[in-house]
């Protein structure tokens, strides 16, 4: 009977979180980049909304949506830039030899990177809102409840992205390729988590589908709660459902991967 030891996963989390705080130069670069992209997108939406035609989503909501996406952008990036190197150099063998569940290991690391990376870039961006011209600033959540719901749902969202990341790592291990797989998952995530354009702007006919797909659980779902829309329990239920499904899938992939490595090694 094995007991679940949490300690190794907490330490994986801590190590990766500390590492993330070392990337200050990158965080500053990311901050500038994300501010710029945010401004460009919002300028674009100002122009689109000024071109006439009534829209059901108010411009102010789109502005807030865009900023929240930009603040969380780091979470969409893969947790391990060096994974490719580790896989190709064989250093990955060490990771597989640890007496821990490898999926849990990668998952903890990914959560750490996403949480800390997001805070390092997002927190300064909140303060920078004050220097922005009127019409370009994000709004506060309409109620305290919406804010709280957002915070809880965002954590669940980060877990969902981390689960996707763990799957990505497993695929990289399997195909010995990081560039192709990573780039593709990255792009899918950016588009379908709502980073490129807010998912609220997709046609009304596909809204049901677009809100159901897994990437929407990552950032779109919490942001809708922030804006005061959506049902909290329903949203959270959907996020946790996807988290379980993706976690189950990722864990299975890592198991098979381990088996394969053992067979090859034997």
């Amino acid at each position: 009977m094995k007991t679940l030891r949490l300690r190794p996963y907490l330490s994986a989390f801590r190590v990766r979180a500390l590492l993330e705080t070392q990337y200050r130069g990158a965080a500053l670069g990311g901050l500038v980049t994300q501010m710029f992209f945010g401004l460009v997108y919002i300028a674009l939406y100002h122009a689109l909304y000024a071109s006439g035609g009534a829209q059901e989503t108010p411009l102010a909501e789109v502005v807030t949506y865009v900023w929240l996406q930009q603040m969380a952008f780091r979470a969409l990036l893969s947790a391990d830039g060096e994974l490719n190197e580790r896989v190709l150099s064989g250093g990955i063998a060490y990771d597989l030899c640890r007496p821990v569940d490898p999926w849990g290991w990668w998952f903890s690391r990914a959560v750490a990177q996403k949480l800390v990376g997001m805070l390092m870039r997002g927190a300064p961006m909140v303060f920078l809102q004050f220097v922005l011209p009127v019409g370009y600033r994000m709004a506060l959540p309409p109620t305290w409840g919406a804010g709280a719901a957002f915070a809880v749902s965002l954590m669940a969202g980060l877990a969902v992205i981390a689960a996707v990341d763990a799957i990505r790592s497993a695929v990289v291990m399997r195909t010995l390729d990081a560039r192709g797989v990573s780039a593709m998952i990255q792009l899918l995530m950016m588009i379908f988590a709502g980073n490129v354009i807010p998912l609220t702007l997709f046609p009304a006919q596909v809204q049901g589908l677009i809100r159901f797909q897994p990437f929407a659980q990552a950032l779109d779902a919490p942001i809708r709660l922030y804006l005061g829309g959506g049902d909290f329990l329903l949203t959270l239920g959907m996020q946790l459902g996807w988290l379980l499904a993706l976690g189950w899938l990722g864990r299975g992939m890592w198991r098979r991967q381990l088996l394969r490595v053992t067979i090859q090694g034997g």
Binding site: R179, G180, M184, L187, L188, I191, V196, I197, L201, P203
Partner: peptide, 25 residues
């Protein structure tokens, strides 16, 4: 091989995704 395919595919996804975004707008 696998990488070659994936890279080519991700190129297609990237440009296709951007076209999709513009079309939605």
């Amino acid at each position: 091989r696998a990488s070659f395919l994936m890279q080519t595919l991700s190129q297609a996804v990237m440009t296709g995704g951007e076209l999709l975004a513009v079309e939605v707008l």
